[in-house]
């Protein structure tokens, strides 16, 4: 069964449980896996967050819950339509479409929550339901050829800003490539630097410009090139808690999206960003840690995803020196330094 048929079957199943209950004269209830923090568990084997087995019941016999059930089944029907016609919609569009339903949403936030409920209840990612995020994915530069519908695209021939990962990345097919690895960088500034310095040639690599926190589509792309093409993935971010965590979410998934991490996390990806040790060894220009940085670092130190020696040491060291540094700060030694010197040294050490 392909993804599409699987999705349709799941949707139909939701309707069936309700109708079955009514036919048995019991008040229907829908089991919704809990997304509360206590039900989000770090799976040591899988190396990412998964949902535990706690769930809540949404009963038609409860005045608050019946509304949510009504919203959920209405949304399910809308998604069924999208999947059947192979269209997509943004959740914002769905929010407006819902104006025509028999039960509506008080706000965009409410419809977002019900969307997540539907994902976990069916165990199916929103993209498979045809619901796309507004945001675009990262830019990709380098010698890879992909097929989207019937168009073939080479990411080294899509302009200086490369190929943009679209929300429908799952429909894309990898046709051919000629690279050894993938290097993802946090900012488009660094992306363009690497393109300009021909890093794709020097390192036989794809260059991915994350544009900050990686979009779902970007994470899906990285997971697919890692698993399907067996390319090692390196993530090169700023040397601060936020840079660390952008990488960690790619590697081990986010807690908030525990229900879809199996589709998003790339546990074999490697952090190759600026560390506290780099700050010291390369004598980088720094900014002092702000209170919020310190707080965030302390949070990270307690997070199970950071429980290995490397991270514990680097976090401790950063707190000790009280400083952070951006990747672009290597420009202190000239624009080319980061590509000519830093990356080769880093790659060697991995």
């Amino acid at each position: 069964m392909n993804r599409r048929d699987f999705t349709l079957a799941k949707l139909k199943g939701l309707g069936n449980t309700i109708i079955d209950d009514v036919e048995k004269n019991t008040v229907p209830a829908v089991k919704v896996p809990s997304r509360g923090t206590s039900n989000i568990v770090y799976d040591q084997d899988k190396r990412y967050y998964v949902l535990g087995d706690r769930y809540g019941q949404r009963s038609l016999g409860n005045v608050k819950q019946i509304k949510k059930v009504a919203q959920m089944v209405s949304m399910a029907n809308f998604c069924k339509g999208l999947v059947e016609t192979q269209k997509t919609a943004t959740i914002r569009e769905m929010y407006y479409v819902s104006e025509g339903w028999d039960v509506d949403f008080g706000s965009q936030d409410e419809s977002n929550l019900i969307g997540e409920d539907l994902e976990v209840t069916l165990g199916i990612a929103r993209e498979d339901l045809g619901l796309m995020p507004e945001e675009d994915g990262a830019s990709v530069y380098g010698n890879i050829t992909i097929k989207d519908d019937d168009v073939e695209i080479n990411a080294a021939k899509s302009g200086k800003s490369g190929y943009s990962i679209s929300p429908t990345i799952d429909d894309v097919e990898f046709v051919d490539h000629d690279v050894q690895r993938v290097i993802a960088v946090e900012t488009m500034g660094m992306f363009h630097r690497m393109v300009q310095e021909k890093a794709y040639k020097k390192f036989d690599t794809l260059i991915v410009g994350l544009k900050g926190q990686a979009a779902r589509a970007t994470r899906r792309f990285l997971k697919r090139v890692n698993e399907e093409l067996h390319l090692p993935v390196y993530i090169c971010n700023d040397g601060d808690p936020w840079g660390f965590h952008i990488a960690m979410v790619i590697i081990s998934g986010s807690a908030k999206l525990a229900h879809v991490n199996h589709d998003l996390a790339t546990p074999d990806a490697k952090f190759m960003g600026v560390t506290a040790s780099d700050i010291i060894n390369y004598d980088l220009p720094t900014d002092p840690l702000k209170d919020i940085d310190v707080l965030r670092l302390k949070e990270l130190a307690k997070d199970p995803r950071y429980k290995n020696e490397f991270w514990q040491n680097e976090i401790k060291k950063m707190l000790k020196i009280g400083k952070k540094a951006e990747q672009q700060s290597f420009s202190k030694y000239g624009l080319e330094y980061v590509v000519d010197t830093y990356f080769p040294e880093k790659l060697d050490s991995m």
């Binding site: 069936n16 009514v22 005045v63 009504a70």
Partner: peptide, 22 residues
Amino acid sequence: VFETLVPVVLKEAAILAERDVP
């Protein structure tokens, strides 16, 4: 609320399941 929403849920569930409203 119940009088309004029960029929809505069952109508939508029936469409979803491609069955009749029981």
